[in-house]
Simulated scan of single mutants.
Amino acid sequence: MPEPTPEPTFRERPVSFVRRSGRMSDGQERAWAAYSDFYLIDVPRDDAVTSVLAGSAVEPAVVWGREAPLIVEIGSGQGHAIIHASSTRPDVDFLAVEVFRAGLARTMLDAAREGVENLRLVEANAPEVLEHLLPAASIDELWIFFPDPWHKSKHNKRRLIDEEFAGIAARAVKDGGMLRLATDWEHYARQMRTVLDASPDFERAFEGEWAERFDGRILTAFEQKGARVGRSIRDLAYRRTGATER
């Protein structure tokens, strides 16, 4: 008898992205073939394409070949911010987390052109990277710049920053480490602030209503586009307090 068709598998909660599987350009395909062996971390998968299998933790000192501070950017896009940062701070290790393969390919290409060697990339769902791939208390700074705002009310549940994510981030960020965020959507900015103000694991690292613009965040075309249509950029910065046990 033929084998029964397996039931489809789904994540337990909505992810904060829509998987786009469009064809990469020829240049991106060449970049992927040429540079992924060096830049891309091989990730054991669970059922979903962008998942990370539990128990798959890597050792940063082995991946980068040294002991150094680690900065992780979630949603690195085409890599403009993290390539600038990694090329100007060779004493720090960087990890770009992104689910869009074309963006990762562009990041590899530009990183190679700049001669960047302290950057690695991972193609995976960000919370699973923080929960399963990186060891506890391994991140010095976690950057989340302009995450998808999912601005329709019925889609707000897909937003990355919520109470559950705050706990996952707290596991991965070392005591005294920083969580830096930016968005051009006022409602999402306020949600982020409410979530993190309520977290027992983080404390504000700014005074007043919003943080000053993080000077380590370069001005990208995406940010300029938001400003042109009148959206104010909101920065937030929180310090891992070590107030609760992991």
Rank of each mutant, 00 (worst) to 15 (best):
P2L: 13
P2C: 07
E3L: 12
T9V: 15
F10H: 10
R11I: 04
S16F: 05
F17W: 13
S21F: 04
G22C: 01
D26V: 11
E29D: 09
W32K: 03
A33M: 11
D37L: 08
D37W: 03
L40D: 02
L40F: 03
L40T: 03
L40P: 03
I41Y: 04
V43C: 02
D46E: 11
G55V: 11
G55P: 00
V58P: 00
E59T: 15
W64Q: 02
G65Q: 03
A68N: 05
P69H: 07
P69N: 10
P69E: 09
L70I: 11
L70E: 02
V72R: 08
I74M: 08
I74T: 10
I74N: 01
S76I: 10
I83T: 04
A85R: 14
S86I: 01
T88A: 14
T88M: 09
D91W: 07
D93N: 08
F94Y: 14
V97N: 05
R106N: 10
L109H: 11
E114N: 06
L119T: 13
L119R: 04
A124T: 03
N125G: 05
N125F: 10
L130M: 14
E131H: 05
D140S: 14
E141V: 15
E141F: 11
W143D: 09
W143A: 01
P149V: 10
S153W: 14
S153T: 15
K154C: 12
H155P: 08
K157H: 12
R158K: 08
R158T: 02
L160F: 14
L160S: 06
I161L: 12
D162M: 02
E163C: 06
F165T: 12
A166G: 02
I168R: 05
A170F: 03
A170H: 03
R171S: 04
G176R: 04
G176S: 02
G177V: 10
M178N: 06
A182E: 11
Y188W: 04
A189Y: 09
T194Y: 07
V195C: 06
V195D: 09
D197C: 08
A198R: 03
D201K: 13
F202G: 01
F202Q: 01
A205M: 04
A205E: 07
G208R: 05
R213D: 07
G216E: 12
E223S: 08
Q224F: 05
K225W: 01
S232W: 00
R234I: 15
L236M: 13
E245H: 03
E245G: 13
